[in-house]
Amino acid sequence: MTKFIDLTLSGISDGAIYAAVALALVLIWRSTRIVNFAQGAMLMITTFIASAVINSGGSYVLGFAVALASGFVFGAVVERVVVRPIEHAPPLNAVILTLGLYTLLVAVAGMIWGNTPRSFPAAFSLRGYKVGGTTLLFTPNDTFIVLVVIAVAVALALLFRATSVGLRMRAAAFAPEVARLLGVRVGRMLTLGWALAAMTGALAGVLVAPSVFLGPNSFDPILIIGFVAAVLGGLDSPPGAVVGGLVLGLALSYVSGYEGSALVPLAALAILVIVLMIRPTGLFSATKERRV
């Protein structure tokens, strides 16, 4: 029973990170119908930037803020410079382009920071809470992770549901041409969508870095699981991404705890296959059909 509680708690913490990654993918898919394969490399770069800030004497809070800010700018720049020119091109162009960007960023990171993974500080203690005589597999840092991801998800939900910028962003995503006819500056909304997505990705990067270490390829497994979470949630639904992330975090935690951690990637892919076979639109999708 203790083991079950432990696995559940660590599953929630992992799930929060998958949810943040899934949110980053979903925000971009919603606004530009692109699966951003470069997301993992983008959040790797912003985490390296945070690491550089912290290593040169900056506080954790400063590093954290710099990661989010650089993610926001990075996302906007990628949309303007790389994605905008292929806006009306066939979908395959975007796939190749984001894969190419991924390769480029990983190579550049290796050249600047080296390929040996380095440690990254955690915000809070990594020693589990003690309840009675036992130590739980849930740390103050896990609490921080879960609370921060919840805060970001709620903030995004409020932005989309309760503000006029959010309404314009939704209109631009659902019906770009009609939105333009209503005076919405659709290009700006898409840039903002990418910026917010990359910022959410940057958040996932700094949250997960203490446990996976920081190297050019460190975040690839998280990205794959985040992608599965996004598909599970319907790929165009932010609440779906959060639920998908948590479900996957729990499922993979149980697999890892009861069957062994070697099975985790396999389990993630098995879940992906099952979702695509049984409910290809995901759990929360608004649209009935999807073209991938």
């Binding site: 309404l167 939704r170 209109a171 659902f174 019906a175 041409e177 009609v178 006819l181 608004a286």
Partner: peptide
């Protein structure tokens, strides 16, 4: 007001 009315169905 475009042809086919152009209301945004999701909103």
């Amino acid at each position: 007001v475009p042809e086919g009315r152009g209301v945004i169905a999701e909103l």
